[in-house]
């Protein structure tokens, strides 16, 4: 970033920022750390896997759209609690959520991901990629699982996940922002907080760069999700219109 426009922020201010973002993250996570610890990490048995696989394509799509929408509602609440987000104009709040909420859902997915079994918590148990076969987009599902696995390998703490999520939501390079400069200021401050928390947690020097690489991977996954949805909608327009959650359609339906 341009040194001249970087805000000057004290260490105490950065500490405070990390604390408030982490608090908001923990308050708005769909599953609390204690709940996760109590989960038995139980995988779907084969008969249940087959039952998901034999669902009609549109029924499985609808189920996944509902699950994604539930997760996104928590992300909206997280965004609202980030300092400065609600001071942005409503156009920009919506632009940032439309572009960034699914990215945060994908980042949060690593909290619910079992790397050893390549499975994610879904509909009550842990599901491997094969559970999602009926969706008819195996490549996208495999990429989402690969992403979750690579996020897990970074072993981010909750405060690092929180600040990285805020950093993603406050991306100043989204199209259609009206007050880009204001978003830029917020994002720069959040980036300083991210650097600060990584240093404080004694991360290696390349940690921030590794997270930057995740940003482009997330953008590509979200673009592929939109393309896959639009291909599905071309075949099942009525299913999307009448059975998909309104929020999901607002965010991705175009």
């Amino acid at each position: 970033s341009d040194g001249d426009t970087s805000p000057t922020v004290s260490m105490a201010e950065l500490d405070h920022l990390v604390q408030t973002i982490s608090k908001s993250h923990l308050e708005t996570c769909q599953y609390l750390r204690e709940e996760l610890q109590q989960m038995s990490w139980q995988k779907f048995p084969q008969d249940e896997v087959e039952s998901y696989q034999s669902k009609p394509r549109e029924v499985m799509w609808q189920l996944c759209a509902v699950k994604i929408t539930e997760a996104i509602q928590y992300v909206v609440e997280f965004a609202k609690r980030i300092d400065g987000f609600m001071d942005l104009c409503q156009n920009d709040q919506i632009v940032l959520l439309k572009a960034g909420s699914l990215e945060v859902v994908l980042v949060r997915m690593c909290r619910l991901f079992d790397s050893q079994n390549n499975s994610v918590y879904f509909d009550g148990k842990f599901a491997g990629p094969d559970v999602f076969r009926a969706l008819g987009c195996d490549d996208l599902i495999a990429s989402v699982f690969d992403f979750a696995s690579s996020m897990c390998s970074l072993r981010l703490s909750e405060d690092e996940l929180a600040v990285f999520s805020a950093f993603l939501l406050l991306s100043a390079d989204r199209s259609w922002l009206q007050e880009k400069l204001q978003v830029e200021k917020l994002q720069q401050k959040t980036q300083l907080a991210l650097q600060h928390v990584l240093q404080k947690n004694r991360r290696e020097d390349g940690a921030l760069n590794k997270l930057r690489c995740k940003v482009s991977a997330l953008r590509s996954l979200c673009t592929r999700h939109t393309e896959t949805l639009s291909a599905f909608r071309a075949v099942y327009p009525d299913v999307v219109r009448t059975h998909f959650p309104p929020l999901y359609k607002e965010l991705f339906g175009a």
């Binding site: 509602q73 909206v76 609440e77 609202k80 709040q93 919506i94 959520l97 439309k98 929020l247 607002e250």
Partner: peptide, 20 residues
Amino acid sequence: KEKHKILHQLLQNSTSPVDL
């Protein structure tokens, strides 16, 4: 505004309609 009715509602509500 009509296009993003739910998002507007979620942003304006003091708490979102999820059981947080």
